[in-house]
Structure formats: structure tokens, C-alpha cells
Simulated assay, not measured.
Amino acid sequence: MHKTEAGEKAKVMRKEAGELARAAKAAMKAAKTLPDAGVKARELEGRADVLKAESEALKGAARLEDLHLWQMEKVKTTKRGSRTYHYWMANWRESGKVRNVHLGSCERMSQAEALQKAKRMKAEALGMADLCE
């Protein structure tokens, strides 16, 4: 998987959750001697669980962001001369293979619109349509 914004954010969250879980474990050991350490340990465990859940939710978003958008140029030659057409293409990995998808003309849609369309198509292909909305 390539580096994506959501993927990097999830990675930071997982690291922070691990640190909180270690701190909670240390607080539980200290709870045997200090009565208020148990409360602190449960609080740390709760925050660690929340961060783990959020990082799991970001995994799907990171997977949708991992696609490549590019412009294809096609030159058609006729009796009157040649004409160049530009259109948006996207590709991503699906089941171990690269899938190339035609998105539409560069004249009719902007790069942002093409990116949204590509994310929507990838979500449908991967069965994650609810994440792209």
C-alpha cells in the first residue's frame, strides 16, 4: 500500500494507542499500592480503545485514497489532419492486479471531479460504497 493521508493518520493513532495501553498496564501494576491508579488505568485503557477503533475506521479511507489519477492523450489521424483528445484515467490494485479505468474527458470534468468519480468507482469495486459518501 502506498502512503496516504488517512493511512499515516491511522498509523499515528495506532502508535498512540499502543503507548496508552502500555501506560495503562503500568498504572494497573501501581494500582496495588495506590488506590487512585486503578481509575487512571481504566481511563487510559478507554482512550486506547477509542484510538484503536478510530484507526481501524481509517483503514477503509486509506484504501480508497490509494489510487493513481492521470491524463491519457490520444491522437486520432483523419484525412483532414490529426486531433488530440485528453481524458482522465485512474488505476488501483484489485485482487493483486492493476485495474485501469476510464473516467471521462478532461474538457468535461476537472481533476477534483475525476478524483471523486475514481474513489466512488473504487469503493463500488471493493464493496465499500458506504465509505465514499
Rank of each mutant, 00 (worst) to 15 (best):
K3T: 14
K3W: 11
K3S: 14
E5C: 04
E5S: 10
E8I: 11
K9P: 03
K11A: 06
V12M: 07
V12F: 10
V12P: 00
R14V: 06
K15V: 06
E16K: 11
E16Q: 14
E16H: 11
E19W: 09
A21P: 00
A21R: 10
R22I: 10
R22E: 12
R22S: 15
K25G: 15
K29T: 13
K32F: 09
L34N: 15
P35R: 15
D36F: 07
G38C: 02
A41F: 07
G46F: 09
G46E: 10
G46N: 14
R47L: 10
A48Q: 05
D49E: 11
V50T: 03
V50S: 08
V50L: 09
L51M: 14
K52H: 10
A53N: 06
A53F: 06
A53H: 06
A53L: 14
A53Y: 05
E54R: 15
E54W: 04
S55Q: 10
A57P: 04
G60S: 07
G60K: 12
G60E: 08
A62Y: 14
A62W: 09
R63T: 07
L64V: 04
L64E: 04
L69W: 02
W70F: 11
Q71F: 04
Q71V: 15
Q71S: 06
V75S: 09
T77W: 02
T78F: 05
K79L: 08
S82T: 10
R83C: 03
T84N: 10
H86T: 12
W88Q: 02
W92Q: 09
W92N: 12
R93F: 08
S95G: 15
S95E: 15
G96V: 05
K97E: 07
K97P: 02
R99G: 01
N100K: 07
H102Q: 05
L103N: 01
R108P: 01
R108F: 07
M109T: 03
S110Y: 09
S110V: 13
Q111V: 13
A118F: 02
K119T: 13
M121K: 08
K122R: 15
A125P: 00
M128Y: 07
C132H: 08
E133P: 08
E133F: 03
